[in-house]
Amino acid sequence: MAYDKFNILTSTAVPLPLENVDTDQIIPARFLKATKREGFGDNLFRDWRYNNDGSPKKDFILNNPIYSGKILVGGKNFGSGSSREHAAWAVYDYGFRCVVSSFFADIFRNNCLNVGVLPVQVSAEFSEQIFNAIYDDPNTEIEINLPEQTITILSTGAKESFDINSYKKDNMLNGFDDIDYLQSMKSDIESFANGLLL
């Protein structure tokens, strides 16, 4: 699926300092019944965001107009649990282009990279600095520089570099996905398959 290219993103950020945020919270299973990739952002964090009657829960961060932006800053072990790519779609569809955490669950991280959301893993200390900076001033901007692989808190100048493998980095910079690559090597795949026992 095509997604927007990612280069340098400068934005305010939304803090969600809870640990072990699982994909059932990011999007509950009962909202996985679509057969198209549309509208998942409306149900992002559905049960934390809305009461049963559909009214917004005032104390949830996404309902607080003070915080907004294209970056979601989560706590440790973000995205654990189910492999549902719908969780990454919901994050993207809501308008986030980057999720920052001190630790990501594997499948969620992979899914993000496949749908155009950049997962940026930072140290626990830097994660704390980001939360503090946002709480001090919700208008604090964060710069995510993919070519340089750095994340900077612009108000304090604090900066850290992050890892991403060069293949995935190239994909994100150009808006490519893995299917483009795999299609280009189909004859290699077919000769490999021909050599298999089962």
């Binding site: 189910s82 492999s83 790519e85 992979n110 496949n114 893995d178 795999l182 398959a193």
Partner: peptide, 18 residues
């Protein structure tokens, strides 16, 4: 387990990138 983008990869090329 894999995501839906990877389901598409497996259907079309029997491979994923891991």
């Amino acid at each position: 387990g894999i995501g839906t983008s990877e389901v598409e990869m497996v259907l079309s090329t029997q491979c994923i990138m891991q």
